[in-house]
Design a protein around this nucleic acid. Sequence first.
RNA 1: GGAGGGGUAGCAUAGUGGUCUAAUGCGGCGGAUUGCUAAUCCGUUGUACCGUCGAAAGGCGGUACCGUGGGUUCAAAUCCCACCCCCUCCGCCA
Length: 421
Amino acid sequence: MYPFKFVRENLDLLKKTAELKNQKVEWDKFEELDNERRRLIMFIEERKKWQKDLTEKISREKENKDLITPLINQARKYSDEINEAENRLNKIEKELEKIISFIPNIPHSSVPVGKDEKDNVVVKEWGEKKEKNFQVLPHWEIGEKLGILDFQRGSKITGSFFPVFKGVGAFLVRSLINFMIDLHIKNGFKEVWVPSLVNRDSLFNTGQLPKLEDDMYYLERDDFFLIPTAEVPVTNLHKNEVLNEDDLPIYYVAYTPCFRREAGAYGKETKGLIRVHQFDKVELVKFVKPETSYDELETLLQEAEKVLQLLNLPYRVVLLCSGELSFAGSKCYDIEVWCPGVEKWLEVSSCSNFESFQARRANIKFRRKDGKTDYVHTLNGSGIALPRTIIGIIENYQTENGEIIVPDVLRDYMKMERIAI
RNA sequence: GGAGGGGUAGCAUAGUGGUCUAAUGCGGCGGAUUGCUAAUCCGUUGUACCGUCGAAAGGCGGUACCGUGGGUUCAAAUCCCACCCCCUCCGCCA
């Protein structure tokens, strides 16, 4: 969310970025209303000044009725004029804010310009796609055979794409969450537990609203939303705060369930655990000084990569092009794990720098040593999302006789070497 | 859900219609004193917007901001209404 002045002074740049991100904005209307807003402010402020002077005179001469009666009449006139102009100003500012709220964040200069996923750049590949001398089954087949996944019963309870994990499957979910959180705590992240329901304001601040309203579950009675990611509650932890420079950087790790309606996504990559309405995720969030945020993005990416390296799952890192960047993002890396059963790279993490975009909306500042305040930069990355990681484990660690070897790093948690019938 | 108390600049607190242009303390920043630290003393102090000057840092002039939004009034931190949040107690409840 940019201030009016910034938009006014950077119209060309913002128009270009909105185009790159395929976002429609009412630019002409903005210019017209912005001019009118400034005219009105000048009109109002002038009259307020006059009114103030009169008020002072009235106050001084309040004993002298004959003298102040005409003054009061004049002041009343100003008061009416101010009132009327302010009503118009309020309307105009609301309209302007609505227009501005649809202006997306500006991509960083290192982001490749492009339209769709074909223009993304693979910047790294890690691990080996091991050749197996047997046909690797997709996770839903082997998972149901082993009794650790149950899609039928999930849809009975709620609807399709609400999976059930059973027995060792449920234990695997719990173990992965603990493994990931333990890892991140060891590397300096502070664990937080936050609400999974949030208000409109919080979603606006992180940039999900106004654009993605239809993609979220909504509780009408209370005007709350179920979170699509822990990014929303964790980033809003410091809404309307002024942090101390010495407190930065702040690193948080949070486990939460995530809820996504995935409106219109049916039929595409939706089998098994690939795309579900409710899933678990361990999320990393950083609050940092602007001058360090791009270094912080690289270390955030490394932190997320560590999870896959320790699980020994082959993955690649993709730098998103401008057209694929989210509304609020300045730069974003996706991490995709190779899943040989479905023969696809599946996204398990998205690491983004939002620069000051979210901090402006959420009003999160910090005070520098010289006393000046500045907006923090916020970053977040999944560290990492569970269902697709589980796909990766089931499909990469599958044996010929239909068992799953437990990755070394999880054996401390699960106290077993293989998942078998 | 009910009753009462509260929300004032980074924090803590004062302020019940008109020099409030929001006081005071702490903290922060700058300086003085000083073997070191501490203490003391002096100065300074927020945010947003509009106009104007400037390449910029910023300067100057103005307006607004006392939880949020309305209302009364010539004039609101102060009076009235609604809502939000925090605290205490009661009720209900996993």
